[in-house]
Computed example of a mutant assay.
Amino acid sequence: MNNPNDAPKPNPRNTISLKTAKKWAKEWRDDEASYNKYFECRAFNIPKKDLIEVLQEEGVAGVRGYIGVEKLKVEGENVFIEKLMIVGVDKNGKDMLKLSSEDADVLDSEGGDIYDFTEPCPSACDDDSPLNGGPN
């Protein structure tokens, strides 16, 4: 059995600010009605190590995933990257959010982080999975 002390600690490299998360989530909510007519996001790959990081935060009883879209300009064209943002949830079912210099509107400065380490499918897909349209 693995030693609990060997578990990865939360890594700020995999986190984003609340301001960015709110922007991505709003982009998804604003565009969701027509978004899936044009884009094929079906799933997200979540690396085990990164999920463990979220669970290692002090006071985390569970996790919650929020869907968002990062909108970028590449060579003058809009490019959309689907995001699954993961936050720790405390024993009362409340999101654990941490104040950063970019976030002036967060109430809980002792909370957790917002993680953005997932990869959308496509392109991080299992083409053979029946959940992704592969063989049964």
Rank of each mutant, 00 (worst) to 15 (best):
P10S: 03
Y35F: 08
K98R: 15
I52S: 11
A33M: 12
K48H: 12
G111Q: 10
T118D: 10
K83L: 07
R29G: 08
I16N: 04
K83S: 05
K73Q: 10
N45K: 14
A104G: 15
N45G: 11
K37W: 00
F80D: 00
G111S: 11
I81S: 02
K98E: 13
L107E: 12
A25M: 09
V87N: 14
K71G: 06
I67T: 09
D108P: 02
S101Y: 12
K26S: 05
P12Q: 00
P10D: 02
D90M: 07
D105H: 09
V60N: 00
K91W: 08
E77Q: 13
F80G: 03
A43R: 09
L99Q: 14
Y38E: 13
S101N: 15
V87T: 15
C41A: 15
S109L: 07
I86P: 03
I114W: 04
G68L: 05
L84G: 11
P10C: 05
S17G: 09
A43D: 08
P47H: 08
E77F: 02
V79M: 05
L51S: 10
I16L: 00
L84Y: 07
T118E: 07
Y38N: 15
V63W: 08
A61C: 11
S17N: 02
K37S: 10
V63T: 05
N92A: 14
F39W: 13
D103G: 10
P8I: 05
N78I: 05
N36L: 12
I114S: 10
V89N: 11
K49C: 07
N14M: 04
P8C: 00
N14G: 04
D116M: 02
S100H: 13
V79H: 05
G76E: 05
W24P: 00
N92M: 09
M96N: 08
K23S: 06
L55T: 01
T20F: 06
Y66A: 06
K73P: 00
S17T: 08
L55V: 01
Y115N: 00
L51G: 13
L107Q: 12
S34M: 06
P47N: 10
A25N: 09
V54H: 00
C41N: 14
E77I: 00
E110I: 01
K71M: 12
E27D: 14
K23T: 10
W24H: 07
Y66T: 03
E58K: 10
K23P: 04
V63F: 15
E27V: 03
N78L: 01
F117C: 01
A7Q: 03
K37C: 04
E75D: 13
V74D: 01
D30R: 06
S109E: 09
K71D: 07
D90G: 12
F39K: 14
A7W: 03
S101E: 15
K94V: 08
V69L: 07
